[in-house]
Design a protein around this nucleic acid. Sequence first.
DNA 1: CCCCAGTCCTGCGGGC
DNA 2: TGCCCGCAGGACTGGG
Length: 284
Amino acid sequence: MPELPEVETMRRGIAAIVGSRIAAADRSPCERRPILIQPRPTTLAKRLVGREVTAVDRLGKRVVVRIDNGDSLIFEPRMTGLVLVADPPTKEHLRFCLELTGGPIRQVWYWDRRGLGSVRLLTAEQLTSQLGSGKLGPDALQLSAEELQLRLASSRRAIKVALLDQRAVAGIGNLYASEILNLAGIHPARRCDQLTRSQWRRVHTCLGEVLQEAIRHEGSTLSDGTYRNALNRAGGYQNMHRVYDREGKICPTCQATKIVRIVQAQRATFFCPKCQANRRRRGA
DNA sequence: CCCCAGTCCTGCGGGC
DNA sequence: TGCCCGCAGGACTGGG
């Protein structure tokens, strides 16, 4: 679930660790099957302890803690991971802890109910080869309309499926793909190679609007309540959702048509059949 | 190139 | 009421 807005909120929640020194790094006592930690915890701690944090970045849906020797500690939350500085939702799903000195934040926790996520320490070379531009497309918020069109317009895939491809554009997931296309008025099954230039501009504009607004509201906490910011507080953007998880409800744009749910690439897609009619030109 | 199904995992909600 | 099954999907993999 955590997509660009949620991961960006996590990043901001621990950004104050820049300049702090790492005092300890360890998996937390957790009876669950251990999550992926690389390298093994003892080696990882050896490489981290005593080092200084130089930056906290985001790469797509991952939080990247930069270390003063060029290494990067990558938190990848996947479905249910959280990066916390206080009060976890439950103790039993705490997976990893970073202890810090010399700054306002003493501990950064990685919490993960389902445990599909990971904590990995990568060298600069590993980072480039595993998460560089060949593996991960440009960030959704650092992308011009022209580049978006250039990267996707020759594809025969459905636009909604293509937006989920992290090699094309990094950061968009299942929830925001539906939201973006509803705001843009484009049918999710429309083939990329059939979108007009003005439609690509609209996708680009709406992509920025939806993601920025979601960041402003600190992300979406769905009914399962899993996602929280670093202070264990729920986000607010779920109250702004136009279509996601709103099958059968009235579309907020046309105020007339019921939202429909379909499945694309084995994932749920929500859209308004009236505002997002599947034809080349809208309205004309 | 692209598609599909399977994999990891847990909690919840529908159905009986 | 209680239990079982299926579903949720981010990233990845293997087969077609």
